[in-house]
Design a protein around this nucleic acid. Structure first.
Lengths: 138, 138
DNA sequence: TGTCAATTTGCGACACATTTGCAATAGTGG
DNA sequence: CCACTATTGCAAATGTGTCGCAAATTGACA
């Protein structure tokens, strides 16, 4: 199932309308990974800011998108129904965001750590900081 | 070396003044782990809010504190020179923040993942979400 | 396809968070 | 202790996220 179908299907499953506005917000997110809220509103220039916020909140609840911690703020990207689960590294020099390969050992360790505190783990985010290959060479 | 000495030493090493304001901000952070910015400014009531922000930014650059992702926001706590490196789990039911044991396997995996993308890793943050033991029993 | 009820949107206004410029003040080195 | 520089407080600007409400859009169904 392609991204567009998955999107429409997810909305329908939760009895939410497939509107022009939501489609525009989804398109922006689908075409540009790792958008900040500011970038997203810029790319949806004919959609009111409040509506973008409302769509983002809804999409997050439906699992269509996830919030990725990024410094003091966060970025948005499509959720696991669209991408394989993965994490990101942020280059502190140029600000680039690099997607990292999936790694089940890592996920297992987290599960194990949580268990030791009798914590029932439902989700997690990892934020790496450092310097990307390009910036190391400058 | 105790926390206070480490603090003064870190400032001196970076040619930064040890001022009354910075000391107050540091004290608040040293006595209460996991403060939000709002809580921090409340605890530094005789320090101007803008100065608290300026101190926090400086402390973060010097590694005196780290920002811990916490939902859409973040919390502050003393850096690695003051505490052993660790991560937190946030209970989505009651909001509690649970410190997790250190785990070198985990850290090694992250290092490995970063290397595969030729990324030079300098720091990382992990945020776990789920339900704490107490809330599971209710 | 047209109509209607329900949902969603845009707008304006608000509340709160964070940053900035600048004059006054406090800290540092000699 | 003085003079110089860095830091602070203040006030104002900017940024982020939310809300109420009237108007527009959507989905269901005739």
């Amino acid at each position: 199932m392609n991204a567009q179908k998955t999107f429409e299907h997810t909305l329908a499953k939760h009895h939410q309308s497939h509107t022009r506005t939501r489609q525009q917000v989804f398109d922006a997110l689908a075409h540009h990974a790792n958008l900040s809220m500011r970038e997203l509103t810029r790319r949806c220039s004919n959609v009111d800011r409040a509506s973008v916020y409302r769509s983002v909140k809804l999409f997050e609840q439906l699992g269509i998108i996830v919030r990725i911690p990024h410094g003091w703020k966060y970025r948005l990207e499509l959720g696991e129904a669209f991408h394989e689960h993965h994490h990101h590294a942020t280059c502190d020099t140029c600000g680039a965001s690099i997607a990292l390969p999936e790694d089940s050992t890592l996920e297992d360790r987290l599960q194990e750590l949580a268990s030791r505190r009798h914590f029932r783990l439902t989700s997690h985010q990892i934020e790496l900081h450092g310097q990307c290959q390009n910036c190391q060479n400058n």
